[in-house]
Simulated scan of single mutants.
Amino acid sequence: MSKVIIVGGGIGGLTAAAAFHQQGWDVEVLEQAPEIAEVGAGISLWSNALRALDVIGLGAQARDRARAEASAGIRESKGGWLSRADVAAIRDTYGLPILLHRADLLDLLRAAVPESALRPGISVREARSDGTVVHSAGSSTADLIVGADGLRSVVRRAVCGEIAPRYAGYTAWRVLVTPTAPIGDLAETWGRGERFGYAALADGRVYCYATANLPEGTRTDGRAELRRRFGRWHDPIPGLLAAADDDAVLQHDIYALPPLKTYVAERIALVGDAAHAMTPNLGQGACQAIEDAIVLARVAKEDGDLTRYDRLRRPRTQMIVARSGRIGQVAQLSWPPVVAVRNAMLKLVPAAAQVKALGAVVDWTP
């Protein structure tokens, strides 16, 4: 029996674990955290990721736990629409994305992996191209190592050496809120160097996120900072912030990786953020990690040629990283005259053009 060591127990790592387990591989998942869990955030899964999950029989379960996104668009801070999505056309052309809690998705994936395969509390120190992983509990050896250990990947060093992530220029806050009144729409509001977005989950809670241009490493006081910045924006933003718990607000600076020259080296392959960490502007970070895992497992089953995995995944993911980065640059513009031009141009973009532009990202099948 072939063995795979997966470093990282997040969405990409557990998707890979489930896919390899279904193919009869001996699976070992090494996760640094004391338990495999996700907290405090929602996640969008577009049709490309749902088709990938269908391959391992989890797509229907994800859809059952989720809420299909309804009306959506971009507003300005007083509430006027800058852009409205043609939801019907997106649904008919590609299928609508779903929104669920990250923890719910992780639970689905974890249930598809044998408990004996999961090793939380293990810190990986080195990965070697011969299939050896040195970690806090000793070492493990496998036919294949999957680096699913995120932005600061240890495994990536064995493939590409030291690669420094690039700060995107803005920080992000995330929080789950129980609103006092139901929220139906999904909307993202663009200001000057600031954004606020919200979307309802299936259980009635609302996932909120916000961004602001700040120097790297700037720490803020969470909800108080959000209320100072966004408390006078259009409804329902003030009410959502009023309902937020101070302790529930998460803050993370936003980074992306520069393009890697390869995702593979001998017995090592990278997936997800370890290979192509991206800004969140297209909602594709987790989607691409899921795609990676499914394609890697299929390549391993068909011929084991990791260079083919690299050829299949690197051009697509790096295109999406670049596109997401460009959207973020436009969305975070802060000089008032340029913001005014941006907003005027957004109003002129036909809805049909927006739908067509999605194709390169979401019109993908395994």
Rank of each mutant, 00 (worst) to 15 (best):
V124C: 10
A340S: 13
A68F: 11
R342T: 15
A68G: 14
A322N: 10
L151H: 08
R67T: 05
A137H: 06
G121R: 03
I5W: 13
R157A: 00
N281T: 07
T132N: 02
E76V: 09
A187S: 13
G150W: 01
P258W: 13
V349C: 04
I183K: 09
A187H: 11
A112E: 11
N281S: 03
C208V: 12
V271R: 05
G40Q: 01
G197D: 02
G121A: 00
P336F: 05
A212D: 01
G359M: 03
R51Y: 01
Y309H: 05
M278C: 05
Y170S: 00
D292G: 02
H252R: 14
R119P: 15
G191I: 08
P236H: 08
P120M: 13
I163K: 08
P350G: 00
R219C: 09
V159Q: 06
A164R: 13
V39W: 13
T189N: 01
E126Q: 07
Q251S: 11
A49I: 02
S153M: 01
I290P: 03
L348Y: 05
G121V: 03
D273L: 01
G9N: 10
P350A: 03
R75E: 04
R308S: 01
D149S: 01
L109T: 14
E115Q: 07
P215S: 05
A70I: 13
A62H: 04
S83M: 13
R174Q: 10
S71C: 15
A66F: 04
I122F: 02
A62E: 10
S324R: 04
Q329T: 14
G222T: 08
G359I: 06
A340M: 10
I268T: 06
R128F: 01
A164Y: 15
R326G: 07
R65F: 14
A164K: 14
A89Q: 11
T132Q: 06
L333M: 11
F230T: 06
P236I: 09
G359N: 06
G10D: 08
G184N: 03
R110P: 10
V29I: 12
G131I: 04
R119Q: 15
N343C: 14
A210H: 02
D130E: 02
V338D: 15
L118P: 01
G161P: 06
A85V: 14
R313T: 03
A49S: 05
